[in-house]
């Protein structure tokens, strides 16, 4: 029940994007046609994912420094929400690609790089479910998470830019920022990025708070049990 201010801003931004994203004019480009409006929805998914994974990375390092299990809960929930947004980004990207590049999957370097980093993060959840001891689980998965983030950055930002890619801004293809993203699109795109990131952050904090409540509940139970054992 912390501050509602930024959540209201998030709602306003997202509603604005839904309305303005379809009503404001966009540049007339061949092949893309009206699908250029997907830029307001598909691209912010990835921005949100990166921010959430970044937060998870931060909390993983924090956990390794402090050893506080609450930081581990933060890291897990931010990673899970990031994975959710990465799946949304991947699906929307494949749908968009089906109608503009001619195939949902064309082994585009950025598609491959993203798929690889998604698999790395899927492995994170599997790794966690395979470990029983809470402390060990938290420590190993925190170390893994740091590596996962360190792998994601070159896989998504560096490697696709060094080879030919269908994505704008990669392999000699012009980025939207160069001339396609005109002033009309900026008016929607920047609020869209901010709004979606805030939405992802909101969902992640909700999940974190719920997990923290559960964690505290479990710990009080454990605490009471220990008390009973020592008394009886």
């Amino acid at each position: 029940m912390r501050s509602w201010g930024w959540k209201i801003i998030c709602i306003i931004l997202c509603m604005y994007v839904v309305v303005a994203g379809f009503l404001l004019p966009v540049p007339r480009l061949d092949i893309l046609n009206e699908t250029i409006r997907n830029l307001y929805f598909h691209v912010p998914m990835w921005f949100t994912m990166i921010v959430l994974f970044g937060a998870a990375f931060y909390y993983s390092i924090k956990y390794l420094r402090t050893g506080n299990l609450q930081d581990d809960i933060y890291a897990v929930q931010f990673t899970n929400t990031g994975i959710f947004f990465s799946i949304l980004g991947m699906l929307t990207g494949m749908e968009w690609a089906q109608y503009t590049w001619g195939a949902a999957w064309s082994n585009d370097p950025k598609q491959l790089g993203t798929a690889m980093s998604m698999l790395i993060y899927f492995a994170y959840t599997i790794l966690r479910s395979g470990l029983k001891d809470d402390e060990k689980k938290a420590k190993i998965s925190a170390v893994y998470n740091v590596f996962a983030f360190a792998m994601m950055v070159p896989l998504i930002f560096v490697l696709p830019r060094m080879v030919d890619s269908l994505h704008p801004g990669n392999g000699g293809n012009p980025a939207f920022a160069k001339y396609d993203l005109d002033s009309d699109m900026r008016k929607v795109f920047y609020p869209a990025v901010a709004g979606w990131i805030m939405l992802g952050w909101w969902i992640a904090t909700l999940k974190t708070r719920l997990a923290l409540v559960r964690y505290k509940g479990e710990n009080t139970l454990q605490f009471e049990l220990e008390k009973k054992q020592t008394n009886g």
Binding site: M1, K7, I11, C14, M15, V18, W202, I203, L206, R209, L210, L212, V213
Partner: peptide, 21 residues
């Protein structure tokens, strides 16, 4: 649809707030 999703999110947020209290 978005209004519905946001209403749902606000509801969840308040429920979790109550749980925390």
């Amino acid at each position: 649809i978005f209004a519905g999703i946001f209403a749902y999110l606000i509801m969840l947020d308040r429920k979790i707030g109550k749980l925390e209290k």
